[in-house]
Nucleic acid binder design. Sequence first.
DNA 1: CTGCAACGTGAAGTCCACTTGAAGTCAAGG
DNA 2: CCTTGACTTCAAGTGGACTTCACGTTGCAG
Lengths: 155, 155
Amino acid sequence: MRSDDLLPIGEVARRAGLATSALRFYEREGLVHGERTSGGQRRYPRNVLRRLAFIRAAQNVGLSLEEVRAALGTLPDGRTPTRADWAQLSRVWRIRLDEQIAGLMALRDGLTTCIGCGCLSLRRCALSNPDDAAGESGSGARFLPPALRRARAAL
Amino acid sequence: MRSDDLLPIGEVARRAGLATSALRFYEREGLVHGERTSGGQRRYPRNVLRRLAFIRAAQNVGLSLEEVRAALGTLPDGRTPTRADWAQLSRVWRIRLDEQIAGLMALRDGLTTCIGCGCLSLRRCALSNPDDAAGESGSGARFLPPALRRARAAL
DNA sequence: CTGCAACGTGAAGTCCACTTGAAGTCAAGG
DNA sequence: CCTTGACTTCAAGTGGACTTCACGTTGCAG
């Protein structure tokens, strides 16, 4: 398995920490590419692991797969990101992370402030402010992704 | 409208910054309660606004509606949270926010570190680490909720 | 050459927080 | 009384990132 350069989907999944179904999904979505055996089974080149790492990192920063697709699309001829591409994209990511952190910190500080006043006055309260960006989306929890929420179910 | 203590759904929706459909949904889910006119229309007591503020605040902290339901359930006889309840719950929320902030900061620092090494080495890279809590959920972006993601679509 | 784990496909299902649609009813100003 | 806008219900749809299912095929160790 190390002797050959092409890995079957199960091996890739195991190494990347993904389900094979996720890999097939990514391939359908054009996020990764691979070859096939004569029998039709997927064989991925080793660098797909790097590409998957890139995808996961992007998700961790808060990008949707759509945005990941766009990011990968900026790379010439769809190559796997090099260190230089990486550094360039990371500048944007860092800004996003900074914004996210700032948002959560504002919320936390609002929590303290609002406890003091006990207001919960809608629209004027930092914690429940419906005019914030946080309130603009149609669905999902306002600030935390399912991943972190599900980890601790009890209030 | 101010003379009477009971508000129609549209009024509540407007004041709370929600759609009426969301209010009906919350009522179906048992998160809020109200009375009805003889004709069957909803009339909400004024304190429902406070309850809605509570719900929104909880969502901002990252709670699912399921968790909000549980939180409201800890209050005796389903009353609207008082300042004391509020203070108690906020202690838990603050911890969550702190954790979330810490997580994002770790990610940001990992970004810097990993740019330096250019590794993206899967499992060992802070940015793409599939063993993190961030990687454990089935769906959605790993760290940022749709609300904040959608605001800036371009990479 | 055989057995069986790993692979293939397409369609449908899941989760969450709502929204949308269709079809009909109520309340209040003129 | 009439019109009109706000309201009612129930069922189905949305979006994102996958997973699950049902059923058939491939590849390799023994």
